[in-house]
Structure formats: structure tokens, C-alpha cells
Design a protein around this nucleic acid. Structure first.
Length: 428
RNA sequence: CGGGGCGUGGCGCAGCCUGGUAGCGCGCACCGUUCGGGUCGGUGAGGUCCCGAGUUCGAAUCUCGGCGCCCCGACCA
């Protein structure tokens, strides 16, 4: 686990002048991400840890429903895109190689996955199954915006289910709804699952997972037991729009801005037909495979978490996403007994498997506290002269900046770890 | 794609109108100071003023062209 004196965490006092969204400002200020060009971002070590936390949650839930992880290329031949008609999408990056062959940079992977499955799947005996990957998506966005929220390149987990018929597809879809609900709950985000628009994906049904926050690009309408995207709300029976207000069965609905963090679609045979993904059933009939796809954007989940829980001091991560569980602040200079006590605490926690970032820098107290609150790890443990006098390590819970009862400085390691673990359990 | 704004050391800005060869705060390096909430003082390093062309004795500043970035809207797996 890193010592801040050796870790690349370039924090800034001032946000970039052109940053508007809270997540944009704070993620840059906290040293999590840096911009390279419009809609193109680099994830620095601490930011990447958060991103990979989200990836870990998604992977676990995908594996739990039988998803099989694989990897498909971003750079692809254009032919399948011609076959599905998606070559004409403006956001699709098109290029050619030295031989003049037409290529695209994939914005999603339906073409690729269907191309492969058209070859691999022969019989109804090969179905059903779910494959997924975490891979970069490229989109020539008209307007990238809000830091990490709308970018031209981003990692998406996209999963694809393959079934012999609509009933199978529906079943796989429901399975994913369950998995996605669990992912969202595990992230600690506030979210809504709403009916979605099928858009240019085509297909027969869709849901979006929306995380409400100020920087959200979309509006969702909310009522008692009802949540929908504004685009589809009006298709719901009983929903009407009067002026700028929405009503359901006469009751007013509230509007809230939200970030779309996941989107799932029933594709049907939208891709299997043009790409020839068929199987033979028991009677020898050649039938198109039924597909559904399931996308989710880890970066947007990260940004939404920043948006939802930040305060005037910085980020406050839900514990499932925090880059580190514990941020140790050592106030003593090298060579002092306070520093020694902090070193010992750091060693104990690290050896006990706790993810710790240790601020051992030779800088001012205020700067250390400010950086800790900016980074937003759930627990901050401070070791200074006071600790030696009182025999206690000061504990601050980042969410709400609440002081928690101190930890006994010279407790046995097991005892100390148990105390930290107990604190951890109580956190949001 | 329509509208608006901006580009000057790592970050935030001033200077531009009224051309004279670049300045401030933060940060950074070193010295001292301080040591539980971005301490204080001193010394110092660091800039193709987005790029190109033009006007001029002289361009960060004026003119033309280009590039880049942000915001609003449209669009949006």
C-alpha cells in the first residue's frame, strides 16, 4: 500500500477554470484523472483504483449469473457494420489501413460478437450463453462534456446473451436485471431503473439505470412507485405533460437530472439476421439467434458517486468504491516518536490486509488534512503528538466529517484490526 | 451542427482597448522559521505569450487564416 511521499497523486488547490461539473472539478483536483484532449482522459493511479473497484463489482455479478469474460478488438473491419447498417452512424470513427481497407473503431461490440457467434453457434445445444468483456469504446461525440461524464473514449462492460427464442432472451434479460440491480446496490449509489428508449440499437425493449445528480444530462420523472426517462414517460398510460410539468393519473411527478450509468436492450434478431447468426433446432430448421445486450459504464459510476456524495471539502466515497479504505495522516516529522507510532499503525493495518494510503510527507498539517478530505477515503486516522498523549489514534469518518471514538494506540494488532473492521461495517 | 466564451511558466489570472520585448497569486527548488487545519520570511529556477502569415523600426498587443479548449442548445449506445 502506498506512501503518499512516493505516490503519484497530483492534487490541486484550484480546479481547472473551464470545469463546470462537481465531479469534473473534484476528480481533477484530487489527482484522479487528467485531460489529454476534448473527451479524452487519463486515469491516474488513485483514480484507476476507483475505476477498477467498480469493474470488480461488475465482474463478480456477471460471473454470478454465468457470464463468460472474453475480449474483442476495438479496431474492426467495416464489413459487418455495413451489414447491420450501423456504418452510417455519425459517431462511428471510420479509418483505413495502409492497404486502403476500410476499418472502424467500435462504439459497441454487437457486430463483433455476433460475427463470432455466427461461426461458433451451430445447434440449439450450443444455446443459451452469456459472454461479456470490458473494452474501450470509441465515439466521435458531437460534444464531449463534464469531464469524465461524456467522453469520446471510455471503457464499457458490455455483455451479450444468446438464446434460441424470445422466451429465452426474456429470461436472460430478467437475469441481468437482477444482476444489475445488485451491482448498483453494491456501488452505494442512489439510482433508478427506468424504462428506456431502444434508440439506434433497435430491438424490442430497454431499461436504463440512472443515477440522480446535478450534473446529469438526462431528466427522469419520478412519482410514487414510478420512475421513467422523460423520453419514454409520455408513452406510459396515464402520464401526461402540461407545460413543463408531468402528471401521472393526475398526480404531479417530480423531475430530477440524472446520469445514465447503464443501459440494457432486448435486441431480438436485429443483429443475428443481418450477420447470419443462426442455429439448427431439433427439426433441422435454421433459425436466427435471439440476442440481448447489457452495457454499463464504470467511469460514469465513479463520476456519479463523486457527484452524489461530495461536500465543500471534497469527495466522499461510498466504501465500495474508495481508492483506499483508510487514509493515515502522520503529523510527526521523520525521527519523532509520533512518526514511529504512525509507521507502526501503517504496518499493522497493511499487514492486516486493510487498504491504506499513508501520508508520510514532510508538509504542513492543514495541507495533509485538506488532501485527505479531497481524496475522500472513508476513514481518516490521525497520529500526532496528541495521540501519544492520549494513547489514541484520532478517527474521522469522511462522510459528514464526523469524529468517531479513537482507536487505542498500543492495542494488539488483532484488536486494532477488529476495531477498524467494526468501524468499516458501520460506514455507508 | 447553431450560439457564446476562451487560449500568456505546472494551476488560477493580469497585461491586449491606447504596439516598445512579460507580470501577479499559488505551486516548485534551496535556506531559515513553524509544527493539530493549506504557517511565516528570504533566495532562486521556470514562459515558442496556441500556430502560421501579414502590417510595423518594433507584435502577447493590430490584421488575416488555421488549430485547440470550455459552456448553452441540437444530437446521443
Amino acid at each position: 500500500m502506498p506512501r503518499l511521499s512516493e505516490y503519484l497523486l497530483p492534487t490541486e488547490k484550484q480546479a481547472p477554470a473551464d470545469a463546470e461539473a462537481v465531479s469534473h472539478k473534484l476528480m481533477v483536483r484530487a489527482g484522479l484523472v487528467r485531460q489529454m484532449a476534448a473527451g479524452l482522459w487519463t486515469w491516474l493511479p488513485a483514480g484507476w483504483r476507483v475505476h477498477q473497484r467498480v469493474v470488480g463489482i461488475i465482474r463478480e455479478e456477471m460471473d454470478a449469473i454465468g457470464g463468460q469474460e472474453m475480449l474483442m478488438p476495438v479496431l474492426q473491419p467495416a464489413e459487418p457494420w455495413h451489414k447491420t447498417g450501423r456504418i452510417k452512424i455519425e459517431e462511428l470513427f471510420k479509418l483505413s489501413d495502409r492497404k486502403g481497407s476500410e476499418l472502424v473503431l467500435a462504439m459497441t461490440h454487437e457486430e463483433a460478437v455476433t460475427f463470432h457467434m455466427a461461426q461458433a453457434v451451430r445447434s440449439y445445444r450450443d444455446l443459451p450463453f452469456i459472454v461479456y468483456h470490458f473494452q474501450v469504446k470509441e465515439r466521435d461525440e458531437a460534444r464531449p462534456r463534464a469531464g469524465i461524464l461524456r467522453t469520446r473514449e471510455f471503457i464499457m462492460k458490455d455483455a451479450y446473451s444468446f438464446d434460441r427464442d424470445q422466451a429465452g432472451m426474456d429470461k436472460n434479460y430478467d437475469l441481468h436485471v437482477g444482476a444489475y440491480d445488485r451491482m448498483m446496490e453494491r456501488t452505494g449509489l442512489r439510482f433508478y431503473r427506468v424504462e428506456g428508449d431502444v434508440g439506434m440499437m433497435g430491438g424490442t425493449g430497454a431499461h436504463e439505470y440512472m443515477a440522480p445528480c446535478e450534473a446529469g444530462e438526462d431528466q427522469i420523472v419520478l412519482g410514487e412507485g414510478y420512475a421513467a426517462n422523460t423520453e419514454v414517460a409520455l408513452a406510459t398510460p396515464g402520464v401526461e405533460k402540461v407545460g413543463e410539468e408531468y402528471f401521472k393519473d393526475g398526480q404531479p411527478l417530480t423531475l430530477e437530472p440524472a446520469i445514465e450509468i447503464a443501459n440494457i436492450f432486448k435486441l431480438g434478431t436485429r443483429y443475428s439476421e443481418p450477420l447470419g447468426a443462426t442455429y439448427l433446432d431439433e427439426t433441422g430448421a435454421d433459425l436466427p439467434v435471439w440476442m440481448a445486450c447489457f452495457g454499463i459504464g464504470p467511469a460514469r459510476i465513479v463520476a456519479a458517486a463523486v457527484e452524489q456524495f461530495a461536500d465543500e471539502h471534497g469527495i466522499s466515497w461510498p466504501k465500495a468504491l474508495a481508492p483506499f479504505a483508510v487514509h493515515i495522516v502522520s503529523l510527526g516529522k521523520a525521527g519523532t516518536s509520533e512518526r514511529e507510532a504512525a509507521d507502526t499503525l501503517y504496518a499493522t493495518l497493511t499487514e492486516g490486509g486493510v487498504e491504506v494510503i499513508y501520508d508520510d510527507r514532510e508538509i504542513g498539517t492543514g495541507e495533509k488534512f485538506a488532501d485527505a478530505e479531497l481524496l475522500g477515503c472513508p476513514l481518516r486516522l490521525t497520529v500526532g503528538r496528541r495521540s501519544l498523549e492520549s494513547g489514541e489514534v484520532e478517527v474521522q469518518v469522511r462522510r459528514g466529517r464526523q469524529q468517531a471514538p479513537g482507536l487505542e494506540l498500543d492495542a494488539e494488532p488483532a484488536q486494532l484490526l477488529a476495531a477498524v473492521d467494526e468501524l468499516w461495517r458501520s460506514l455507508p
